[in-house]
Design a protein around this nucleic acid. Structure first.
Length: 289
DNA sequence: TATCCGACCTGTTGGC
DNA sequence: TGCCAACAGGTCGGAT
């Protein structure tokens, strides 16, 4: 499931294989894949044609392809992979994937096209105006991610202290810190020895900095091996899977011994998903059980 | 205003 | 063998 490291791997692939190419035509094969483009699939396809693609950007789990020659403000194709989205650079002759949703062809003689493939259709592409900073306007509410040099650790700590919430909810709140999903939240909390229900208002400055350090470490570790992949749902633009699932310490390890203390790891239903933790290393706060 | 939580979506797995 | 429920989870928008 794509979180920040996986999206960054895809962004780098797009920079290598798609940047500086000019769109010949786009084909929308499933309307839900462009549902965030309010003017619809036909409009999306028509407005892409003839534009050269700039260097891809990313914030958190969103990535975008700037379109050159789209006026003073500029426009960009915004992409979110959702749960199962893939952006693949494929030869024209490759058979269509079962869940191919959007195809973009280019004017050059290179024998490849860009495909958006998405089984569960939680992801999608859309076209938006960009801000003076080059950010698509609809993701202005998304916070900087922890790998962004301009991410403000102290401001993040102050925001946590103001919240009447719990630490894992805060990590998943993309308006506070972006790019963290269920997998890396559990990994960073395990490394920090923090229970997922720990109230944010009880975190000290040093504890927040330690948590942020672990968030960055786990993301950088995943990035170094091409991201996490449990199955074929997450792949880079060439269809290759990452290897970080072999390094996970918490996520998906219910019943297996904690790698620190040997206690069997637990899974708890949490907000229609799961939280994995060590009951000994990550003690629940007094109010929770 | 802040926080919480259901809906969306489809393939896989396990139980009966 | 076939049916059905549970599960995976990022984001949005309605409810509290």
């Amino acid at each position: 499931m794509p979180e920040l490291p996986e999206v960054e791997v895809v962004r780098r692939g797009l920079e290598r294989w798609v940047a500086h190419r000019t769109v010949a035509e786009a084909e929308v094969l499933h309307p839900r894949a462009v549902r965030r483009h309010l003017a619809g699939g036909e409009d999306f396809a028509r407005r892409l044609g003839g534009h050269r693609i700039g260097v891809p950007g990313r914030r958190g789990k969103y990535l975008w392809l700037p379109l050159e020659g789209t006026g003073v403000t500029g426009q960009a194709i915004l992409a979110h992979l959702g749960m199962s989205g893939q952006l693949l650079v494929q030869p024209h002759s490759a058979p269509d994937e079962k869940h191919l949703r959007i195809r973009i062809r280019f004017t050059d003689a290179l024998d490849t096209e860009l495909r958006f493939v998405d089984q569960r259709t939680f992801g999608g592409l859309s076209l938006h105006e960009t801000t003076p900073e080059g950010l698509p306007d609809v993701i202005g509410h998304i916070a900087r991610d922890p790998l962004d040099p301009l991410f403000d650790d102290d401001a993040f700590h102050r925001a946590l202290r103001r919240r009447r919430s719990t630490v894992k909810r805060a990590l998943l709140d993309q308006s506070l810190i972006s790019g963290v999903g269920n997998i890396y939240a559990d990994e960073a909390l395990w490394r920090s020895r923090l229970h997922y229900e720990r109230p944010t208002s009880t975190l000290t400055g040093p504890r927040t900095r330690e948590l942020l350090g672990h968030v960055r470490d786990v993301m950088n570790d995943a990035l170094a091996v091409g991201g996490t992949s449990f199955d074929s749902l997450y792949v880079d633009v060439n269809g290759e899977s990452g290897y970080f699932d072999r390094s996970l310490d918490a996520y998906g390890r219910e019943g297996e011994p904690c790698r620190r203390c040997g206690t069997p790891m637990r899974r708890r239903p949490w907000m229609n998903r799961s939280s994995y933790f060590c009951p000994r290393c990550q003690r629940p706060p007094r109010a929770a059980s």
